[in-house]
Lab assay of single mutants.
Amino acid sequence: MIVFVRFNSSHGFPVEVDSDTSIFQLKEVVAKRQGVPADQLRVIFAGKELRNDWTVQNCDLDQQSIVHIVQRPWRKGQEMNATGGDDPRNAAGGCEREPQSLTRVDLSSSVLPGDSVGLAVILHTDSRKDSPPAGSPAGRSIYNSFYVYCKGPCQRVQPGKLRVQCSTCRQATLTLTQGPSCWDDVLIPNRMSGECQSPHCPGTSAEFFFKCGAHPTSDKETSVALHLIATNSRNITCITCTDVRSPVLVFQCNSRHVICLDCFHLYCVTRLNDRQFVHDPQLGYSLPCVAGCPNSLIKELHHFRILGEEQYNRYQQYGAEECVLQMGGVLCPRPGCGAGLLPEPDQRKVTCEGGNGLGCGFAFCRECKEAYHEGECSAVFEASGTTTQAYRVDERAAEQARWEAASKETIKKTTKPCPRCHVPVEKNGGCMHMKCPQPQCRLEWCWNCGCEWNRVCMGDHWFDV
């Protein structure tokens, strides 16, 4: 396979590697080409510095992935760790964990309700045991953590790749202090920090972006993250068709209702045909949960890209028209025109101005929308079919299609509260000796007794199943 190397943020060049090629071997190839010592090179990928003893497969490097290699003399205490030698983080029983690669970060837990604080980093599902597709590297999971809308060759929703760059020099040479644990960490600028490894760059702020994971991409090709779309790892039924499908869209209502993408497309087109989208002054033209839940309008309007190009163009047109109407304007009634106009409040005669090729020149009556006339309008008909009709959803289907309910059931079956801080902690095999993952707590306690870890627990039921 081919990976592209950008040395000291210059133009990239291809390097041929195998899945079992080590990072140090990659350094040696680059060092020979650039005429520099291999031990002064640092390989940066997806916000993480890659260790010498890791392989291309370990690092989730795919065909035509772009890695950054910078030349920086080692500072005291760094060289041993980078070589894969006596790194205290690798000691058996050590409590410190390697910062998780962005290629394996899962933010789907952050669609849980606000009262489930902490689960994004504490609760991990076991539903990723799908067998890898044919042709994928051994052991590589097909679980997708992110979804994007690819405006490039795909023109559809695709699995996405999370990447990070330095907000100062805009190069992907920043190593994160810690990985993101929720969508806010990724979507809110300057929320996460790190250290830029580019020479002479003092940058410390992280800037995240997404790429389409279905095809090789260049540095400049980015895609918009659709953070309401998630892999259906909890096997929730769709609120409309009641099938279990994946991926799904999880509405931001209190129940976190789930809808499959085909039904979401149908829901949007139906509402669009009836012009029953909601115009929100802050958000724009949007839709609420299909069950009509309060405070559930979709905030990231790129989710409506699921409509496809033709329907999305209609959505944008109707949204612009609705904006004009909300501002007190009118639409030209001549067939084939429909231009938005903003006449004076007491102006009865409205002319669709033909300047700049935008208007048709038609003069019409503001009251009856017919060709302009003197005197009273002959008839004014009330528009028919403008009443909002509820999208029919079966109550039982709505009850079963809740992301929140599956989460709470998982928590109930696989977790116990920490005796000190009461945060839910998952036990997935292993011994009875637990350690609270909350940095402010870190209590060592017994899963069996529910009390602080002691010699009695150690001698009596340390390794009970």
Rank of each mutant, 00 (worst) to 15 (best):
I2V: 14
F4P: 06
R6A: 03
R6D: 04
F7E: 03
N8E: 05
N8C: 02
N8L: 02
S9Y: 04
S10V: 04
S10C: 10
S10I: 04
G12I: 04
P14C: 03
V15W: 00
E16F: 06
V17P: 01
D20Q: 10
D20C: 07
T21C: 08
T21H: 05
T21Q: 09
T21L: 05
S22V: 03
I23R: 00
F24K: 09
F24E: 10
Q25L: 03
K27E: 00
E28W: 03
E28C: 07
K32E: 11
R33C: 04
G35P: 01
G35M: 06
V36M: 05
P37E: 13
A38F: 04
D39H: 07
R42S: 14
R42C: 13
V43C: 14
V43M: 04
V43R: 01
A46E: 13
K48A: 04
E49Y: 01
L50C: 04
R51N: 11
N52E: 11
W54V: 07
T55D: 03
Q57F: 06
C59T: 07
L61Y: 02
L61H: 01
D62H: 15
D62P: 14
Q63D: 15
S65F: 03
I66A: 05
I66E: 05
H68Y: 03
V70I: 12
V70E: 04
R72S: 14
R72V: 13
R72F: 13
P73S: 06
P73M: 06
P73K: 06
Q78M: 13
N81I: 14
A82S: 11
D86S: 11
D87K: 11
R89L: 13
N90M: 14
N90S: 13
A92Q: 13
G94N: 11
C95P: 15
C95T: 10
E96I: 09
E96N: 09
R97C: 09
E98L: 09
P99F: 10
P99N: 14
Q100A: 12
Q100I: 08
R104K: 13
S108G: 11
S109N: 12
L112T: 14
L112I: 13
P113I: 08
D115Q: 13
S116M: 08
V117N: 15
V117P: 13
V117W: 06
V121P: 15
V121C: 14
I122Y: 14
I122R: 14
D126L: 07
S127Q: 13
R128M: 13
K129L: 12
D130S: 11
D130L: 10
S131H: 09
P132F: 10
P132H: 11
P133W: 10
P133H: 11
G135S: 11
S136T: 12
P137K: 12
S141T: 11
I142S: 12
N144T: 09
S145H: 07
Y149I: 04
K151P: 14
G152T: 11
P153Q: 10
C154F: 00
Q155G: 14
V157Q: 04
Q158E: 07
Q158M: 14
P159D: 03
P159Q: 08
K161M: 08
S167N: 10
C169H: 00
A172G: 12
T175D: 11
Q178D: 14
P180Q: 01
C182M: 06
D184C: 03
D185F: 00
D185W: 00
I188T: 09
P189L: 05
N190V: 04
R191D: 02
M192D: 00
S193P: 08
S193R: 15
G194R: 01
G194L: 05
C196L: 00
C196I: 00
Q197M: 12
H200A: 13
C201F: 01
C201Y: 01
G203E: 03
T204W: 04
T204P: 03
E207M: 06
K211C: 14
C212F: 01
H215Y: 00
K220N: 11
K220H: 12
T222L: 08
V224R: 09
L226D: 02
H227F: 11
L228K: 03
T231C: 09
T231F: 08
T231K: 11
S233F: 08
R234S: 07
N235C: 07
T237P: 15
T237K: 15
T237M: 11
C238Y: 01
T240R: 07
R245A: 11
S246H: 05
P247A: 04
P247M: 05
V248M: 04
F251E: 00
Q252P: 15
Q252F: 03
N254S: 11
R256V: 01
V258C: 09
V258L: 03
V258H: 02
I259W: 01
I259P: 00
D262I: 03
C263M: 00
C263S: 00
C263E: 01
H265M: 10
L266W: 05
C268D: 00
V269K: 03
V269P: 01
V269L: 04
T270W: 04
R271M: 14
L272E: 01
N273V: 03
N273M: 04
D274E: 08
Q276K: 09
F277G: 02
V278T: 09
V278K: 08
P281W: 06
Q282E: 12
Q282K: 13
L283W: 08
S286I: 00
S286Q: 01
P288H: 05
P288D: 06
C289I: 01
V290W: 04
V290K: 04
V290M: 05
A291K: 11
A291E: 03
G292K: 06
C293I: 02
C293P: 00
P294S: 12
N295G: 09
S296G: 03
S296T: 03
S296D: 00
I298G: 00
K299P: 05
H303A: 03
R305C: 07
R305P: 02
I306H: 03
Q311P: 04
Q316M: 12
Q317H: 10
Y318K: 02
E321W: 05
E321H: 06
E322T: 05
E322S: 05
E322G: 03
V324P: 03
V324H: 06
L325G: 04
G329K: 03
V330K: 04
L331C: 05
P333W: 02
P333C: 03
P333F: 02
P335D: 05
G338N: 09
G338H: 06
G338V: 06
A339F: 14
G340F: 05
L342A: 08
L342D: 05
P343Q: 07
R348M: 09
R348K: 12
K349R: 13
V350R: 03
E353I: 08
G354H: 09
N356H: 09
N356P: 09
G357W: 12
L358M: 15
L358E: 15
F362M: 08
A363W: 06
C365N: 03
C365K: 03
C365W: 02
E367D: 12
K369I: 04
A371G: 08
A371Q: 13
Y372A: 10
Y372E: 07
H373P: 02
A379R: 09
A379S: 11
V380C: 08
V380G: 07
F381S: 07
F381G: 05
E382N: 14
E382M: 14
E382C: 14
G385N: 09
T386C: 13
T386P: 10
T387F: 09
T387P: 13
T387D: 11
T388R: 12
Q389C: 13
A390K: 12
A390I: 12
Y391N: 07
D394N: 07
R396C: 10
A397L: 10
E399F: 10
A401N: 03
A401Y: 02
W403H: 03
A405W: 07
A406M: 14
A406T: 14
S407N: 14
K408M: 11
E409W: 09
T410N: 09
K413I: 14
P417Q: 11
P417D: 15
C418M: 00
C418N: 01
C418F: 01
P419Y: 03
P419V: 05
C421E: 02
H422L: 08
V423M: 15
P424V: 06
V425T: 14
V425L: 10
E426N: 11
E426M: 13
K427T: 06
K427L: 07
K427V: 08
G430R: 14
C436D: 01
P437K: 04
P437T: 08
P437G: 08
R442A: 15
R442P: 05
L443M: 08
L443G: 05
E444P: 05
W445E: 00
C446F: 02
W447A: 07
N448I: 08
G450V: 02
C451Q: 15
E452V: 15
W453L: 03
W453A: 02
W453D: 01
V456K: 15
V456N: 15
C457A: 00
D460L: 15
W462Q: 07
F463T: 00
D464G: 15
V465K: 06
